[in-house]
């Protein structure tokens, strides 16, 4: 399922808050909380684009970046074969951008979507 239901959830939340302010029912709030989009899209996009950059730049990887999301921001950590840390940071802004750092070297800074499009064979 890929429908983005966040806004719908927000609309419902307004109505439900009116109801629950009277009833104080946490169970209903649990249902409203569940009406969010399928998770994972932003994490997956940043993770895939970062991995493709590491491959393109021929970085020897021991641990491919593992990504997590908090308040739209995505951060990923991994390690090169020589143990040097790999970090990926994205603040979740639109358009989605990221910065990849290997040790102290900034490997990439820029937009995520063009990386994904190019990997899929799209040429401008």
């Amino acid at each position: 399922m890929s429908a983005r239901l966040r806004r719908f959830g927000a609309i419902l939340a307004v109505g439900v808050m009116a109801v629950t302010s009277l009833s104080g029912c946490g169970r209903l709030m649990s249902q409203v909380g569940a009406l969010t989009a399928v998770g994972g899209d932003r994490v997956a996009a940043v993770g895939a684009a970062a991995d493709d950059i590491l491959i393109r730049e021929r970085v020897q990887v021991m641990q491919w970046p593992q990504c997590s999301e908090a308040k739209k921001a995505v951060s990923c950590t991994g390690a090169a074969l020589d143990g040097v840390p790999i970090t990926v940071e994205s603040d979740g802004s639109s358009p989605l951008t990221m910065t990849i750092t290997v040790g102290t070297r900034e490997l990439f800074r820029g937009e995520v979507q063009p990386i994904l499009n190019e990997a899929a064979g799209q040429k401008p």
């Binding site: 899209d41 895939a48 493709d52 994904l116």
Partner: peptide, 13 residues
């Protein structure tokens, strides 16, 4: 209405 290229994942996926 989708982001098709993202769903390929990376070579590492």
């Amino acid at each position: 209405n989708e982001n098709p290229t993202m769903r390929l994942g990376s070579l590492s996926d």
